[in-house]
């Protein structure tokens, strides 16, 4: 009888105070990148990793950036002035990528559901890359646009 009580209470306590499931925040997979080159559709095999956040947003990064191991994700964030960040010329995300010493690029890749996705990445030294939308998310509140 006592054992039953103890078991039941153990069961209840474990269910009431159970920790939420830890979000799986990285998945890497070999995929195909697609882009137009010399007027022809070109394909390239590459590793791509998915980084997910608790608010359910997902971004794609290079394998070298997993666990914030690459320089751009380790870099200390500080206020950033970007000339004409929001102006009638060009994409702000591309300007942010430049300001962080990266090179922006538009590309397509095949996701794990075998569906093609088009996106933009910012490429850094050693071929580290992160999606520009991830950079914008992390830096946008630190940007001061200047004219």
């Amino acid at each position: 009888m006592i054992k039953l009580f103890i078991f039941l209470n153990f069961f209840i306590i474990n269910n009431v105070f159970a920790k939420p499931e830890v979000v799986k925040n990285k998945v890497c997979f070999e995929t195909t990148f697609k882009f137009y080159y010399n007027g022809k559709l070109e394909f390239e095999k590459n590793q791509l990793c998915r980084k997910s956040y608790e608010d359910k947003m997902t971004f794609y990064i290079s394998k070298s950036c997993v666990d914030n191991q690459c320089e751009i994700l380790k870099r200390a964030k500080k206020p950033l002035e970007i000339k004409d960040y929001i102006s009638n010329v060009g994409s702000p995300g591309f300007k942010l990528c430049f300001a962080l010493d990266g090179v922006p690029q538009i590309f397509e890749f095949e996701d794990q559901q075998k569906k093609w996705q088009s996106t933009e990445r910012c490429i850094f030294k050693n071929n580290d890359f992160v999606e520009i939308s991830l950079l914008s998310r992390e830096w946008k509140n630190l940007i001061t646009p200047t004219n």
Partner: peptide, 29 residues
């Protein structure tokens, strides 16, 4: 026409749209 980025300072009356999967996960700007 600035790509799939979300540069908007989200707050009252301004939020980025997200495409999520059928379970509401893996959301993308």
């Amino acid at each position: 026409s600035w790509g799939k980025d979300c540069i908007q300072k989200e707050g009252t009356g301004l939020t980025c749209h997200k495409n999520c999967d059928s379970q509401g996960d893996n959301c993308r700007y």
